[in-house]
Design a protein around this nucleic acid. Structure first.
Length: 112
DNA sequence: GGGCTGACGGTTG
DNA sequence: GCAACCGCCAGCC
């Protein structure tokens, strides 16, 4: 059983991911930046991969800047993540990617 | 301590 | 807009 990272930055990441509103998606760089590590976008993915399911993080709302979803081997089936996003009214493009430009979570929206 | 990997990003062509 | 290349940095062998 893999243990989740105990670093404070990971805890920060989990909070940020959990703060993503319904129908919105955030990029790895956004989370990393808000966590205080703008260059650690990869660590965001690493964190979610090793995080416990008890966290119930909406990892399906976390995508890269291209709007591509996580590799199929993560969720088991890529359609599963896509289904969750479509269920949240997230606009999808014919290419199979999500319209990141139109549903990107703006952290400023939370503070305003 | 050294080298490789990765749910990535930004720049360049 | 897309593809290729390089760069970042924590984690793991």
């Amino acid at each position: 059983m893999k243990q989740e990272p105990t670093g404070e930055i990971y805890e920060k990441m989990y909070q940020i991911i959990a703060a993503i509103p319904f129908g919105k998606v955030a990029t790895y760089s956004q989370i990393a930046s808000l966590a205080g590590k703008p260059r650690n976008a990869r660590q965001v993915g690493y964190a979610m991969k090793h995080v416990s399911k008890e966290r119930k993080l909406p990892c399906h709302r976390v995508v890269n800047q291209r709007g591509e979803l996580s590799p199929d081997h993560v969720f088991g089936e890529q359609d599963f993540q896509r289904m969750l996003l479509e269920m949240e009214e997230v606009p999808f493009l014919p290419d199979g990617r999500i319209d990141i430009k139109h549903c990107r979570w703006d952290e400023r929206d939370v503070q305003l």
